[in-house]
């Protein structure tokens, strides 16, 4: 363990921790746009500049490893002046259309502007203009709102291993883009959407469906597979409009395309809500008791007439481990056959 002093406070952190991590450990707030504890440090937004005794210039807390005895100052006039300038610069190249932005209320840039009370901006000039619309089905990409924190690029490469996007061009013209600036054509896991600090990346399914403040959040488990990812349903007017996942869950906030964007079935008119039994050539809705009795009876009949090996069971990846265990137990002990398999094998 290393002990360092941050704003006069002694903080103990494990070897290899950064100054930013140490500050968080001590509940000391350092603003940042490009940091995500789950991703490699990047040092691009420069908001987490701190002064370290003995260093000639401010350094970024997110990239600087904590060292024994280090004396860190996280705020002083000079640092706040630079941070303020950075936020002003970002806002000078931003649409500042919070009134109609999906992200309003959950936007780090907006928070920073509020924090620094930036009603006026000393800087003005050309803004990046991107009229191109990305026609992919899931992710709305508004590059005019991008602050180039690089989180989307890093999550795509480091976590998802896909590298569907990267930085293109140089200087003021720099943007994040898929290859050849074509429409995004990836796995659509939406991890990029989940880490974006501004309204540059938002889910298309939730567009115009409700402001952040009106949303009811319901924690649950993703029903799609046995991984059991923790998800949070964002519900507006009794409709799921968005799915997120918190970084402090077992899946660290990461989801796949199904968990993140596959929620439309919930309110779909074709969705099966009760069991169906074919009667006289037509499916009829029945209650669960009737359906279970019907299945039990038919299984019994088949087993008696043709033997247990005439029956086979195929289980689903959408079931939990416990459910799958019970299913094979049922097949072996109750039905009496080893004909049991699982869709994950195919």
């Amino acid at each position: 363990m290393i002990t360092l002093i941050i704003d006069g406070k002694y903080v103990e952190v494990p070897e290899g921790a950064t100054v930013l991590e140490a500050a968080r450990e001590a509940d000391i707030y350092i603003p940042t746009l490009c940091d995500d504890p789950r991703l490699e440090p990047f040092g691009a937004c420069r908001l987490c500049l701190v002064q370290i005794k003995g260093m000639p210039r401010p350094v970024t807390a997110c990239t600087t490893p904590a060292r024994e005895g280090m004396e860190v100052t996280t705020t002083n006039d000079e640092i706040e002046r630079i941070r303020r300038t950075i936020v002003e610069l970002l806002l000078s190249d931003h649409p500042n259309d919070c009134m109609v932005c999906e992200k309003a209320g959950d936007c780090t840039l907006q928070e920073l502007a509020y924090f620094y009370g930036l009603r006026e901006n000393r800087f003005w000039g050309e803004r990046r203009q991107y009229s191109k619309k990305d026609n992919n089905p899931f992710i709305e990409r508004d590059m005019e709102k991008c602050v180039l924190c690089g989180k989307c690029v890093r999550v795509c490469e480091e976590v998802q291993g896909v590298s569907a996007i990267d930085f293109a061009y140089r200087g003021f013209r720099t943007i994040v883009a898929p290859a050849f600036e074509k429409d995004l054509n990836c796995e659509f896991c939406g991890q990029c959407v989940s880490v974006c600090p501004t309204g540059a990346l938002v889910g298309k399914l939730s567009l115009g469906k409700g402001r952040q403040k009106d949303i009811k959040r319901v924690d649950t488990i993703c029903p799609y597979c046995g991984c059991g990812c923790n998800i949070t349903l964002h519900v507006s007017r009794n409709e799921i409009i968005r799915v997120t996942s918190s970084p402090d869950t077992l899946n660290e906030g990461w989801l796949c395309v199904k968990g993140r964007f596959g929620f439309k079935f919930v309110n779909h008119p074709d969705r099966l809500k009760r069991p169906l039994i074919r009667k006289n050539g037509r499916f009829e809705e029945v209650c669960w008791d009737e359906a279970l009795d019907y299945v039990a009876e038919r299984l019994k009949e088949i087993k008696e007439r043709y033997g247990p090996d005439a029956i086979a069971g195929l289980s689903s990846a959408r079931c939990t481990n416990e459910e799958n265990y019970l299913f094979q137990k049922f097949m072996r002990a109750a039905v009496g056959t080893n004909n049991v398999d699982h869709c994950a094998r195919y």
């Binding site: 950075i86 610069l89 000078s92 180039l148 140089r170």
Partner: peptide, 21 residues
């Protein structure tokens, strides 16, 4: 310098642009 900035960090990317303007 503005044209040759890599665009990674904010002060260089937007700051030099504003200086130039």
């Amino acid at each position: 310098t503005q044209a040759e900035s890599c665009g990674k960090c904010v002060p260089c990317r937007i700051g030099t642009k504003r200086l130039l303007e």
